[in-house]
């Protein structure tokens, strides 16, 4: 019984970590800048390839992951300067552009590195309990997911960059007239989103097969979570990650990975049907009602 509970707990931590890490980069770019980045999966690809290739070249894993994150950040910053900054406030155009970018990146990866790379082994060994064992690395990933959410919350709520970024997203001209270099804020936010996607790629590089299409396996979770989460980026991602993680873990535990995925997507469809503004939209309307009731 206790082992079953542990199994379910580990399964939940695993789903939660995957959902949150797959989403954060997209959530920052979409939530703060309104850009639907269809190349999000390829940002993750750059992070994963950067990590795997530099590990293959002889770097220790932690350093190789740093290289993966750095490569993705630079990739993102260059794109922002050359392509994305022309497409702010043009959601449809930016979707087409990022989609094209995604196709190009996948094919370039195939041309440059072939159909697969030799894999980094999963580090840290495993935790054994009774007849079961679980990868310790996957538990660490859950810890990292929580740490990433907490640091992002701190960054956006309590630092000067965070305040200026929120002000810029809310009302760009007024922020500019208060002395904020909004171009730099956009660049910084896009760079941050890219770095987060790169981190996801770096962290999952030891656990997934290195193919040029690996980004696609993150894309569904990422978009579903952003939509279910709603307008308030970080709180939405955390809550939606928790909710979808529970559904995914429960059904995976009962009936296997495939049914777990089906159940999660069904739950997402229901959630979007019932809460068109997402989970944070529901919270906002509760708050508004309570405020009205208080007066």
């Amino acid at each position: 019984m206790i082992y079953d509970t542990l199994n379910l707990l580990f399964q939940f931590l695993d789903s939660f970590a995957f959902i949150v890490l797959a989403t954060v980069g997209l959530a920052v770019i979409f939530g703060m800048m309104g850009i639907i980045n269809l190349a999000h999966g390829e940002f993750i690809l750059v992070g994963a390839y950067g990590t795997t290739l530099s590990y293959g070249a002889g770097l220790p894993l932690a350093l190789a992951m740093g290289v993966g994150v750095l490569a993705t950040t630079v990739f993102g910053l260059v794109l922002e300067r050359t392509v994305m900054r022309r497409l702010y406030h043009r959601p449809l155009d930016s979707m087409v552009a990022t989609w094209g970018l995604s196709l190009v990146t996948v094919q370039l990866a195939r041309i440059g590195f072939g159909n697969t790379l030799s894999q980094v082994g999963t580090p840290l060994g495993s935790i054994s309990y009774g007849a079961f064992s679980y990868s310790a690395y996957r538990v660490v990933l859950a810890g990292i997911a929580v740490a990433v959410l907490v640091s992002l919350y701190w960054l956006f709520m309590y630092t000067e960059f965070g305040t200026q970024a929120r002000a810029t997203m809310e009302d760009e001209p007024t922020a500019r007239s208060m002395g904020v270099d909004t171009g730099r804020i956009y660049l910084g936010t896009f760079g941050l989103g890219s770095a987060l996607a790169g981190l996801t790629g770096a962290l999952y590089a030891p656990t997934i097969t290195m193919t040029p299409e690996l980004g696609a396996s993150f894309l569904v979770e990422a978009f579903v979570t952003v939509v279910v989460g709603g307008s308030s980026v970080l709180v939405g991602t955390s809550l939606a990650g928790g909710f979808l993680g529970v559904v995914n873990a429960t059904f995976t535990n009962l009936a296997g990975t495939f049914i777990g995925q089906v159940a999660m997507l069904l739950a997402a469809i229901l959630a979007i049907r019932l809460l068109p503004e997402g989970i944070t939209g529901l919270i906002d309307s509760w708050r508004a009602k309570r405020a009205e009731g208080g007066q």
Partner: peptide, 11 residues
């Protein structure tokens, strides 16, 4: 936070 935005006026 609104007030803090004004800090960057007149560097």
């Amino acid at each position: 936070e609104n007030l803090r935005m004004g800090e960057s006026i007149n560097e």
